[in-house]
Computed example of a mutant assay.
Amino acid sequence: MSSPSRHGGRHELGQNFLTDRAVIADIQRLVAATRGPIVELAAGDGALTVPLGRLGRPVTAVELDPRRARRLRRRVTGNVTVVNDDLLRFRLPNVPHVVVGNLPFHLTTAALRRLLAAPHWRTAVLVVQWEVARRRAGVGGATLLTASWWPWYEFAVHARIPARAFRPVPSVDGGLLTATRRPEPLVADRKGYQRFVSRVFTGPGRGLGEILLRTGQVPRPVLRGWLRAHRVSPHALPRDLTARQWADLWTRVRPDADPAGPRPRGLTASRRDGHIEEW
């Protein structure tokens, strides 16, 4: 039997180990395109650790199971350090670095929340459940978590990973997700912005127009101008907005906002009904 996980049950119950060489090679290529030290979360038996070590950069592999950690230490080269620790407690480096991980599916949300709030790392290359990867990247509509962090990160789905690529085989497919920290955030006030996004996502109403008015932060003329400028229907839902639309909306409703707001990039004046409107 494996050692107990602090999150309950055997370690195998929480993690499905990658065995598909093509998927492992894809992850290695994505990491090779980045710079800096590498931190691998949930290293397991080293399916990713060993190829990452071949990149010649410092690698810290974090593994909860002490026996797996001991075995992995015997397999790796001198540029790889194996740490027996919990991925939710491990202290990330205070220098720019890259995060890699085949995250235990039942810890995905907790791990992402902790990671997104952490400073210093620049790129994260993560294996998560397929639906989680799609939602984080805003495919088919963004979630509250994605919208809350979009001004600081860009998310992208690179591949769908079939369940047969893991051992034991999970009941769902995986997805290869990257998160990249923006060089310049789209928003300065993180706490204020995130409170606003939460109010919009959880607020009552049958569409953005009604929801935004009910927050009490968006005067009707400002709302009309913003919807028109971004070509957003008042019946659209919060999940339908893009990162830049969220950021621009916040610039108009934050406490020190200019009611006119900045003009969104790429907009042109169009003639309608004999007059010019900003669209």
Rank of each mutant, 00 (worst) to 15 (best):
V139M: 08
G175L: 06
N102I: 07
A179M: 10
W150L: 14
R164V: 05
H97Q: 03
T109G: 07
P162C: 13
G141K: 04
R134G: 01
L126F: 15
A165Q: 04
V222N: 14
R181I: 12
L115S: 11
W121C: 02
P119I: 05
G192P: 02
F155K: 04
P96V: 02
R206P: 01
D189C: 02
A159L: 11
A118M: 11
A133N: 12
G207V: 05
V169W: 09
E131C: 12
T109W: 01
W150P: 05
R182T: 02
F196T: 01
R160E: 04
G216W: 00
P96I: 01
V99G: 09
F166Q: 09
A163R: 13
P151G: 12
R214I: 01
P96L: 05
S198G: 14
K191R: 15
G205N: 03
Q194F: 00
N102R: 12
V197F: 07
T123M: 14
L208T: 04
L212N: 06
V95M: 12
V200I: 02
A118I: 07
A165L: 03
R91A: 15
P151N: 09
V99R: 10
R195F: 03
P93Q: 14
R164D: 02
V99A: 04
L213P: 00
V197W: 08
V128N: 07
V187C: 05
S148D: 00
W130H: 13
A137M: 04
L92Y: 15
V100F: 03
V139K: 07
W149I: 00
T215C: 09
P219A: 03
G101E: 13
P219V: 02
P170N: 05
F105C: 08
A111G: 04
G192V: 00
H97A: 05
L115G: 11
W152V: 00
V157E: 11
L145P: 03
R134A: 06
R214H: 08
R214Y: 08
T143L: 06
R182G: 12
G216V: 01
V169R: 15
F166S: 13
G207K: 08
R190E: 07
V218T: 10
F166K: 13
L208C: 08
T215I: 02
V187R: 13
H120P: 04
R181Y: 12
P151F: 12
E210N: 11
V200A: 08
F155G: 02
P221D: 11
P119L: 10
V132I: 14
A137Y: 02
L103T: 01
E154I: 02
L112I: 09
I211Q: 03
V197K: 14
T143P: 10
P96T: 10
